[in-house]
Design a protein around this nucleic acid. Sequence first.
DNA 1: TCGCCGATCTGGTCTTACCAAAGCGTTGCA
DNA 2: TGCAACGCTTTGGTAAGACCAGATCGGCGA
Lengths: 233, 233
Amino acid sequence: MQQEDFLPSLAAYLIQTARLNAGKAPSERDLAEHFTVSRGQVREALAILEAMQVIERRAKSGIYVNGGIGGLEAMSFFARFGLPLENRQIFEAVEVRKIHEIKAAELAASRATDENFDRLRDILARSEERLQMGEGLDKLDQEFHLEIVRATQNTIFLNICTSFYSLSHSRLKVYFRSPERNRRSHEEHVQIFDAVFRRDAALSAALMVSHLRGAMSYWSELLDPPGGGPVDP
Amino acid sequence: MQQEDFLPSLAAYLIQTARLNAGKAPSERDLAEHFTVSRGQVREALAILEAMQVIERRAKSGIYVNGGIGGLEAMSFFARFGLPLENRQIFEAVEVRKIHEIKAAELAASRATDENFDRLRDILARSEERLQMGEGLDKLDQEFHLEIVRATQNTIFLNICTSFYSLSHSRLKVYFRSPERNRRSHEEHVQIFDAVFRRDAALSAALMVSHLRGAMSYWSELLDPPGGGPVDP
DNA sequence: TCGCCGATCTGGTCTTACCAAAGCGTTGCA
DNA sequence: TGCAACGCTTTGGTAAGACCAGATCGGCGA
């Protein structure tokens, strides 16, 4: 146990043990022993988790796991490593994603460069290829959406959207198991590309609205029913 | 030298020294000596900065400061401690803020609760008070905008917007030195409040558009002219 | 039963030590 | 003279031990 996946392991363990103990996690010394690493390693990881607002370290008292996990970085960190998020968080993240990507399509229409168009064409071509072979879009969907964001030429914006995409990642895998949904998704991508290429900002945004509505309504249905308990992201 | 302000000091020092040495910062041992702390402390801080994508640690080689600073967390960290950002970054952050807050006004119109309205009224009342006494709005502007975001009931969204607000903070102080701008800003806040209170989503969004346009055009003028060099955030 | 006191635990910090690989300068050979 | 091989130094990565001061909590005494 060392390497880079020590952090997520630690985080998962902290949350798991804290849940059984009113939010309080084991001591640094216990954690070090449990993971067979030095206390220094544990402290380094804890410093990062504290900066992410995942935990709180109270001097001479102990380590406490924050309730509803804090910052964006923390959440995308969680999603990246498959840790569970709550329904509310997922819903909120989806809403933020909608806000971002609709505006992204609009801005992309006026700012996309030839390189952006080249990459988009390449992504669409590879999508077509995969569909012909009867395979799911998978990562290509993500690539398409993020390339649209990249076409806004706003690197901060791209940064945020990338984080949010990871929040929905494993869910999307399920979504893209259906051949029909794959096909429709691809066709909508092509339409969006055309609108952006024609520099039609309003149409680009409108198409993105309906594209996201279609894809995400599927998704929110999975969330709502039982109402409450945490689901895996 | 210890406490919480060690991190920003370290960050500033790393960036400063790295600039003179092709992106390479002093070794951990040198840093520990320079700040009169233990190597462990330095490593803990470096772990956080690495997680923020501010630096990169290469085993057996050294510490390297990343060019155009990475993630959102890193940027708001920088802004919070008055470290310089580049023009491009500021422009991008402003654009993202616009995207967020316009949509926030729209959503707030349909979701704001009585508590939100109470807090907004309180903020406006205190604003009025300060204006009467000839003082600037200062923090109250921030409170108003963030309360609008809070009214969307999306905590993740609020989280992001809060980070972005800190990016423009010290600049806003300059903006609010002008009594006339204070007055106009306050009046626009009142109008936005009314629109939200009447649940008029379209009007809320439209008013926010012009409010931000007014406030931020002032600002982008400060950025564009010389074109290039970093400015203080 | 209530309050006080002391042992214990905990995070915070520092020191020392060792490892392995990267860097770099020197040396030695062609 | 030029280049390649060798070896020392530096560097991040990791571990182990120690001390401090405050919080925590149990037991003792009033």
